[in-house]
Design a protein around this nucleic acid. Structure first.
Length: 295
DNA sequence: GAACAGGTGAAGT
DNA sequence: ACTTCACCTGTT
């Protein structure tokens, strides 16, 4: 890794593939927002940064000490995505998906934030997920200043656990709110311990996290992949099910130990291109077609 | 208004 | 084991 730090910005010359838009819009995170220069600004691990690519350099505007301690790992800068992409490109469809999402990086996010965020994500759309998380951070995160702007950290389990019913209700998270409270409580009491989960295999860790109410296989796999870096976790949502239905050759097992990363290319491609399911095929039994009769 | 949006879990076959 | 359904809320 070759980089210089000058004028408040880490400039990396050999960052390899890095596309801010594909990284931050591929659906793995909810707290990074675009700026006017094709860059993105966000918060992780209690720190703020702005990221952009210019003249072939990756430029991360941040506190000098944070590049090595936070952002280098967070942006997964030590992984060669070119190698990964060529390993993934086993057929025409995969090539299209990888090419579409070229420069996407799977962020090494914080376990707690990832868990809570994906609990919010169930049967919800992206803009609303973002809005709920933003409200949560403004309500109970810590306010701090960086780069001349105001930011909020993601709240701790303690802060979330101590929210009143009224405060929780103000997030407009609906039926997901009690799930979030339970998750925070489990972390607080030690019933769920992220370091212990890290030491487990993917299967065992999934089983453990699924003990939480509101955490089924899909949310669990997002947590494992984005929050615990269990790269073989393969979240299968409605879009991935459309991929499976259209391209029977695509199965998690074909992509090895980093199948979860391949999954993110598929998800992003399918969602952005509004991949349809084959006619007559039933893709999901949830949130799709249901007659709701309110009493 | 009804349908839909990155699921889950309980209850019914 | 597989299918159906309710669940909050905001948007189209």
């Amino acid at each position: 890794m070759i980089f210089t730090y000058f004028d408040g910005t880490a400039r990396i010359s050999d960052a390899g593939l890095f596309s801010p838009v594909n990284t931050f819009e591929c659906g793995q995170c909810f707290r990074w927002l675009p700026d006017e220069n094709g860059g993105y600004t966000g918060v992780a691990f209690g720190k703020a940064a702005n990221v952009r690519v210019e003249d072939g350099y990756l430029r991360i505007k941040c506190d000098p000490s944070d590049f090595e301690t936070v952002w280098r790992a967070y942006f997964d800068l030590d992984r060669d995505y070119e190698v990964l992409n060529s390993v993934f490109s086993i057929d025409d469809f995969t090539q299209r998906a990888v090419s579409f999402g070229n420069g996407m990086r799977i962020l090494r996010q914080e376990p707690f934030e990832t868990l809570i965020s994906f609990i919010f994500s169930q049967c919800n759309n992206i803009s609303r997920i973002r809005s709920i998380i933003k409200s949560l951070c403004m309500l109970s995160g810590e306010k701090f200043e960086a780069m001349g702007k105001t930011f909020f950290t993601f709240p701790t389990a303690l802060k979330i656990n101590s929210l009143s019913e009224r405060e929780l209700q103000s997030l407009r998270a609906g039926y997901r709110a009690p799930y979030v409270r339970e998750a925070a409580n489990a972390v607080l009491t030690g019933s769920i311990n992220f370091n212990a989960l890290r030491a487990l295999g993917t299967e065992e860790a999934r089983k453990e996290i699924m003990r939480l109410p509101g955490v089924g296989k899909k949310v669990a796999d997002c947590f494992l992949l984005f929050g615990l870096q269990k790269y073989d976790a393969f979240p299968a949502d409605v879009w991935i099910k459309k991929v499976f239905a259209n391209y029977p050759g695509i199965t998690p097992s074909r992509f090895g130990e980093f199948a979860g990363i391949a999954q993110q290319y598929f998800f992003y491609y399918a969602r952005e291109n509004k991949l349809e399911s084959p006619k007559g095929e039933i893709i999901s039994d949830a949130c799709e077609k249901k007659e709701k009769h309110n009493t």
